[in-house]
Amino acid sequence: MLNLIKRDVILQKRQLLFYIPFIVFFILMGAPPVLIFLVASIFIPFNTYAYDEKVETNILLNSLPYTRTEIIASRYLGAIAYMILSIGVTSVALLAFNKHFTMADIAIGSGLFLLFAALTFPLFQIFKQGYITTVILISFILLTWISRPIALYINEHLTAIIDFVDNTSVTVLYIGATFFIMLIYIISWGITHSIYQRKAF
């Protein structure tokens, strides 16, 4: 299964060259750190999906000694793995450019990413090849467009909340959000898994 996750890097060697400039571009544009964390996390897993919507890729993967369960699991676990990696890279880039960011930025950015992944991954199995990339692209542009004011709004109000509410309830808030997102992610995994099991290639 680790091989399936590592595959993404081999597949995207060339795209990865653009990865750092891509992050730097967002930093220079003055995008809020939350958005940068989100965009950086999306890069690798969604690029993989752009490859994997092809029928041929599914024929290859399913002819190799992998089970369908493993193929889907590698997507969901891989998304988390690459998200963590992206957070690391983005943090370093932000520090290098002397941009301030907080743990809250990371938490919200990764939370939004997982939510976005959970909502879109099953769509890749439902929509026909060729359409899905457009669907995701449009929804992502929309999300990016509305996320900035939302992120700013959330950021402001979170500081306000931090000012008003004591530490324990913030922790409760975070734990609650974490559980909520985890639940959505697991449900999404289950749905994608059951669709993929029944697919014909």
């Binding site: 081999i10 290859l60 000694p65």
Partner: peptide
């Protein structure tokens, strides 16, 4: 599947990759 070698009519490998990279993806599966 460990015991099967397969060849299909069309190309099922990632078109943009070279053979060395395809081997890097396929080999660890077996």
């Amino acid at each position: 599947k460990e015991r099967i070698g397969f060849v299909y009519d069309g190309n099922i490998f990632f078109e943009g990759l070279n053979l060395k990279d395809i081997k890097r993806i396929v080999a660890p599966a077996y």
